[in-house]
């Protein structure tokens, strides 16, 4: 029988933990109640699912786990409205539903043999984590060139997956650069480290910053750090996820570094309901973010109306 696309698959909330110090973001590990369903749920990094709480509603949430990690699905969720609040109120052991996997995914096939630069901001790091874990997986690592990850948040405590960040810092087969926001004075950002251990970069001309080999943590906005790190554009893809303002300022930096629009990849967010291109809610021009996205290259986006 063909699966009815509106009916959620029952899952159990296996683990819950706070992800950030403001306690607004929690990570949930979900396990399928039925092994067959688990097998059938085949997904790729970048896809999302509708988290379904019967009685409250559904929310589209990016899948933060990687298909290479079996046994659970991971979601990192910010508490904003009806569904996400209900989810935050859950205890381990709760039963809920998942509908998916939905949407397209990062170009993991096209990126084979290429370098990958991951640029993330705030808690929008979820599907980037999935991608990173996927590429770092023993079986997959050899398929990709250099992996550079640039990730920032407002404060150190607002970075997600901090335990994993510590591991990635040590890895030789990737470079991780992290940043936190400037401190602000009356005139704007102040040129001094906001937090100890986080090096300032050249505020006025970020690209002139001398990056020392062993220093990987900075006080900077993400676009400035990209500008300072200068990841090579040759044979490289850049995957960018974060708040709209970060994306807006990062894209020109990447373009200047020589990344062509077809190799700058974004993941979009629009209000969604059905997740399968029927309810008409999430379109940008003729494209439905739920079904034709959420992953779009800059080249694709340039063809679409600016309505998101």
């Amino acid at each position: 029988m063909i699966k009815n696309s509106y009916i959620p698959i029952p899952v159990k909330v296996d683990k819950i933990r706070f992800e950030t110090e403001d306690k607004l973001i929690k990570t949930f590990d979900l396990v399928f109640m039925d092994k067959e369903e688990e097998k059938a749920f085949r997904y790729y990094p970048g896809q999302f699912a509708e988290l379904s709480i019967l009685g409250k509603g559904e929310s589209p949430i990016g899948i933060a786990s990687s298909p290479t990690e079996s046994g659970f699905l991971r979601f990192t969720v910010m508490k904003v409205g009806v569904v996400t609040t209900a989810l935050h109120n859950f205890d381990e052991g709760a039963i809920m539903g998942v509908r998916g996997p939905l949407g397209n995914w990062y170009p993991i096939e096209e990126m084979k043999g290429k370098n990958v630069v991951i640029v993330g901001g705030g808690f929008a790091f979820t599907t980037l984590r999935s991608l990173l874990i996927y590429m770092l997986d023993k079986k997959n690592r050899k398929n990709y060139g250099e992996i550079t990850c640039i990730y920032g948040a407002r404060t150190p405590g607002l970075l997600c997956y901090r335990d994993e960040l510590k591991e990635w810092e040590k890895r030789k087969d990737m470079s991780l650069y992290q940043c936190i926001d400037w401190k602000f004075g009356a005139e704007g950002p102040i040129e001094e480290a906001a937090v100890e251990g986080w090096e300032p970069i050249n505020l006025k001309e970020p690209s002139k910053t001398k990056i020392k080999k062993d220093i990987k943590k900075f006080t900077a906005f993400v676009p400035q750090l990209v500008s300072a790190v200068k990841p090579g554009a040759k044979d490289s893809y850049a995957i960018v996820c974060g708040p709209p303002i970060m994306i807006k300022f990062t894209i020109p930096v990447l373009t200047e570094l020589g990344f062509p629009p077809e190799r700058i990849i974004n993941s979009l967010e629009n209000r969604m309901k059905c997740g399968i291109g029927k309810c008409g809610r999430c379109n940008i021009g003729p494209k439905y973010v739920c079904k034709d996205g959420p992953v779009f290259s800059l080249k694709e986006l340039e063809k679409l109306p600016k309505e998101y």
Binding site: L54, G55, K56, G57, K273, C274, K278, C279, G280, R281
Partner: peptide, 24 residues
């Protein structure tokens, strides 16, 4: 016109999830 919303509705302990027409 085919746009719709998905909503949950509880009456006591009984609930249902519905598709409702919606409008752009």
């Amino acid at each position: 016109c085919h746009c719709f919303d998905i909503q949950d509705e509880m009456i006591g302990e009984d609930g249902r999830r519905v598709k409702n027409w919606d409008s752009c």
